[in-house]
Simulated scan of single mutants.
Amino acid sequence: MTNASQARSSMIEGQLRPNNINDENVIEAIASVNREKFVPKAFAGVAYVDEDIRVAEGRYLMEPMVFGRLLSEAHIKPTDLVLDIACGTGYSSAVLARLAEAVVALEEDDGLVETGTAVLAEEACDNVAVVKGDITAGLAKQGPYDLIFINGMVDDVPQTLLEQLSENGRLVCVLNDRGVGKASLVTYKDKVRGVRTLFDAAIPPLAAFARKEEFSF
């Protein structure tokens, strides 16, 4: 067993299972992805620690426990089409690809799009398409999506994204509730938004989803 596979096993047994992440499909998906390939080489040795790992300006690999719990709560089916927002270097997309039928990975930065495409190809993620675009706008032309996954804490979920969900679609993210991160499951059925809080989660924010300050005179 290599050092990386040992670290991956330790992450699963020491971080995921003790936090009630026991969905074997999720466990197997995470176990099958080389997390160390999606971080800068200098951070490969700490790729499996229980912290968010910065991979680019404003982009992080989410803490494994939070990531795993979000995946478990999403109840991903093998027929699902997933939109992975702010995919960074593509780690979340690689794991989602093991659970869903197809993944559209959305990023804004040319460098991240290039890096993500290359690493996902190396990891044989043939059912992932990395696309450059506005992460707050989504990608309606490829939808509707059964699941939208947002990588980072957001102040709110834009209506534009909710309208890209399929009839029984769901969106998982971490919402900023007055400075406290709340992992949430968001639905949009019959034009009614529903939000269910899942657990507390402290992860870095996505600047693009920051609430615009209103000025009063």
Rank of each mutant, 00 (worst) to 15 (best):
T2Y: 13
T2F: 12
I12S: 13
Q15N: 11
Q15C: 05
L16E: 09
L16G: 09
L16A: 08
P18K: 05
N19D: 04
N19R: 07
N22W: 08
D23Q: 09
E28I: 06
E28N: 09
A29R: 07
I30P: 10
I30N: 11
E36V: 09
F38N: 11
V39G: 09
V39C: 14
P40M: 13
F43P: 02
G45R: 11
D52V: 04
V55C: 10
V55N: 14
V55H: 14
A56I: 13
E57L: 14
G58D: 12
R59H: 11
R59T: 08
Y60T: 06
Y60V: 04
L61N: 14
E63W: 02
P64T: 07
M65Q: 14
F67G: 04
G68K: 03
R69A: 03
L71V: 03
H75L: 14
K77Q: 15
T79M: 09
T79H: 11
D80V: 04
I85H: 02
A86S: 12
G88H: 06
G88E: 12
T89V: 08
G90E: 08
G90S: 09
A94P: 00
V95D: 11
L96T: 01
A97Q: 02
L99E: 11
L99H: 07
L99G: 11
A100D: 01
E101Q: 13
E101F: 09
A102E: 11
A102I: 06
L106Q: 03
L106N: 00
E107N: 06
D109R: 14
D109A: 13
L112T: 10
G116V: 08
L120D: 07
E122C: 11
A124F: 10
A124E: 11
A124P: 03
D126T: 12
V128E: 07
V131P: 00
V131K: 02
V131T: 02
D134L: 08
D134M: 07
G138W: 02
L139K: 10
Q142L: 10
F149V: 02
F149P: 05
N151E: 13
N151R: 05
N151L: 06
N151W: 06
V154H: 01
V154W: 01
Q159F: 07
T160A: 15
E163K: 15
E163Q: 13
E163A: 12
Q164T: 01
Q164M: 00
S166P: 10
R170C: 08
V172G: 00
N176F: 01
R178Q: 15
G179E: 06
G179V: 04
A183N: 03
S184T: 00
S184H: 00
L185E: 00
V186K: 00
V186W: 00
K189R: 15
D190L: 12
V192M: 03
R193S: 01
G194K: 02
T197R: 11
L198M: 02
D200S: 13
A201H: 00
A202N: 13
P204A: 07
P205Y: 13
L206V: 15
E213K: 14
S216V: 15
S216G: 13
